[in-house]
Amino acid sequence: TYYTVKSGDTLNKIAAQYGVSVANLRSWNGISGDLIFVGQKLIVKKG
């Protein structure tokens, strides 16, 4: 599943929405910090 980042989104918010961990979101998307951008597509695997 792909999720497109919207204004106001955070990794924590997206992780909670999908029932996954922030660590997994980072791993699946090659993100090291907490910086995400509006319009960015993130890979999300269902929890």
Rank of each mutant, 00 (worst) to 15 (best):
T1I: 13
T1V: 11
T1W: 13
T1K: 08
Y2M: 09
Y2L: 11
Y2H: 11
Y2A: 06
Y2D: 06
Y2P: 06
Y2N: 07
Y3Q: 02
Y3C: 03
Y3H: 10
Y3E: 02
Y3M: 06
Y3G: 01
Y3S: 02
T4S: 10
T4C: 06
T4K: 07
T4D: 06
T4P: 03
T4A: 08
T4N: 07
V5M: 03
V5Q: 00
V5S: 03
V5H: 00
V5P: 02
V5A: 05
K6C: 05
K6I: 15
K6Y: 04
S7Y: 08
S7W: 07
S7C: 05
S7H: 10
S7K: 11
S7N: 09
S7Q: 12
S7I: 13
G8N: 08
G8C: 07
G8K: 06
G8R: 05
D9H: 01
D9P: 00
D9C: 01
T10M: 05
T10A: 05
T10K: 05
T10R: 05
T10N: 08
L11N: 00
L11A: 02
L11D: 01
N12W: 11
N12T: 11
N12G: 13
N12Y: 15
N12E: 10
N12K: 13
K13E: 12
I14C: 01
I14M: 02
A15I: 02
A15L: 02
A15F: 01
A15G: 10
A15E: 02
A15V: 03
A16P: 03
A16H: 11
A16K: 10
A16R: 10
Q17H: 10
Q17E: 12
Q17I: 14
Q17T: 15
Q17K: 10
Q17L: 09
Q17F: 15
Q17D: 14
Y18C: 05
G19D: 13
G19C: 06
G19Q: 15
G19P: 02
G19R: 14
G19K: 15
V20K: 03
V20G: 03
V20Y: 04
V20L: 08
S21I: 06
S21V: 05
S21M: 06
S21R: 05
V22M: 09
V22E: 11
A23K: 11
A23L: 13
A23P: 14
A23C: 07
N24C: 05
L25N: 00
L25D: 00
L25V: 06
R26L: 15
R26W: 05
R26S: 13
S27P: 01
S27I: 10
S27W: 12
S27M: 10
S27V: 13
W28H: 04
W28F: 05
W28A: 04
W28L: 07
N29I: 01
N29K: 00
N29S: 03
N29G: 01
G30E: 15
G30V: 11
G30M: 13
G30I: 10
G30H: 10
G30P: 06
I31S: 03
I31D: 03
I31G: 03
I31W: 04
I31N: 03
I31K: 02
I31L: 10
S32Y: 13
S32N: 12
S32R: 06
S32E: 11
S32T: 14
S32P: 10
S32L: 14
S32M: 07
S32K: 08
S32C: 05
G33M: 08
G33I: 06
G33W: 06
G33E: 09
G33L: 08
G33R: 07
G33P: 03
D34R: 06
D34T: 10
D34K: 07
D34C: 07
D34G: 07
L35H: 11
L35E: 15
I36C: 03
I36Y: 04
I36E: 03
I36K: 02
I36D: 02
I36Q: 02
I36T: 05
I36W: 03
I36V: 08
F37Y: 08
F37G: 07
F37R: 09
F37E: 08
F37I: 14
V38P: 12
V38D: 08
V38R: 06
Q40W: 06
Q40M: 09
Q40K: 05
Q40G: 03
K41T: 12
K41W: 10
K41C: 06
K41Q: 14
K41N: 09
K41R: 12
L42R: 00
L42W: 01
L42H: 00
L42Y: 03
L42C: 02
L42F: 04
L42M: 11
L42T: 01
I43N: 06
I43G: 02
V44R: 01
V44P: 01
V44E: 00
V44F: 05
V44G: 01
V44T: 07
V44L: 08
V44Y: 04
K45R: 09
K45Y: 14
K45P: 08
K45L: 09
K45W: 11
K45E: 12
K46N: 13
K46G: 15
K46A: 13
K46V: 12
K46H: 15
G47T: 14
G47R: 07
G47P: 09
